[in-house]
């Protein structure tokens, strides 16, 4: 049984949990600001600006990407969490289909990520990047697409994890490399060969690139590296395949 009501209540639950976990809320707000104003400000002094763009401005799209990456992956950990604390069983014995549960988790992860990403855009003027309704709209469209892709990927990973310890491994060996090889802190075109190939299969790389199209519409090393349609196609392919795999994986009964 596919149920919109079930999806609604799964999303509602994740939002309630998000706003009730104070620690998570504080980390969520502070982490991107630390990166932007400490790492960004530090490197701005030693990295030459290009095409009228300072380093601190260059990393804003990447920091938005990071926020989405961490938020999406962290929201999928709730699947592992639910499994460890038994709540997953409450969902699995209900009459709604597994696909409904996957969709609910996908939508809640995505909407939380887009919500955080959009909130972060409020600091754009502080680093000298112009923000207007049109840019916000485009950003929200691309952020939604990227969030879907990464949440779907996270759900697939989470479906294999049986404990919260496994999540730390994932954090360090998947999430951080995904961030570092996304073009967030340096253009992927400047990476040495094997690393660049990895970057080319990293969905976040295309996601960050699409944000650069909106926020840094300039030529040169600090601008976007791929055509926008490539970004959209690559992220979409990733999203569809990951969603299909995680839905399939959830549907299995042992």
């Amino acid at each position: 049984m596919f149920s919109y009501k079930a999806i609604y209540v799964i999303v509602l639950r994740e939002f309630k949990r998000f706003f009730r976990q104070r620690g998570r809320l504080v980390v969520t707000i502070l982490r991107p600001l630390l990166w932007l104003f400490i790492v960004g400000a530090g490197f701005t002094r030693i990295v030459q600006s290009s095409g009228g763009i300072d380093y601190i401005q260059f990393i804003l799209p990447g920091i938005v990407g990071m926020t989405i990456l961490f938020s999406s992956i962290f929201s999928t950990i709730s699947v592992v969490w639910d499994r460890e604390f038994g709540f997953m069983r409450e969902m699995l014995v209900s009459p709604v289909s597994r696909v409904t549960i996957v969709m609910g988790k996908l939508l809640s992860g995505t909407s939380l990520s887009v919500f955080q990403g959009t909130a972060l855009l409020a600091v754009a003027p502080a680093v000298g990047i112009r923000i207007d309704p049109e840019r916000i709209l485009y950003m929200m469209v691309f952020m939604t697409l990227v969030s879907f892709a990464i949440t779907a990927f996270g759900l697939l990973v989470a479906s294999f994890l049986t404990s919260l310890e496994g999540f730390n491994v994932i954090m360090n060996f998947i999430v951080l490399p995904m961030f570092f090889l996304s073009g967030a802190l340096y253009p992927v075109g400047s990476l040495p060969d094997p690393l660049r190939w990895i970057a080319y299969v990293n969905p976040l790389c295309y996601g960050v690139d699409s944000f650069k199209h909106v926020l840094l519409p300039v030529e040169g090393v600090f601008g976007a590296e791929f055509p926008l349609y490539v970004d959209i196609i690559m992220v979409s392919i990733f999203f569809v395949s990951m969603t299909a795999l995680s839905a399939f994986n959830f549907e299995r009964r042992k």
């Binding site: 009501k5 609604y8 209540v9 009730r20 976990q21 038994g86 709540f87 209900s94 009459p95 709604v96």
Partner: peptide, 20 residues
């Protein structure tokens, strides 16, 4: 198998909506 971060009411409401 309750959600500790939700209230009694919210846990029950979650369940009812899952059962349509």
């Amino acid at each position: 198998t309750l959600d500790n971060e939700l209230t009694a009411y919210e846990n029950l409401k979650f369940h009812c909506y899952m059962y349509n």
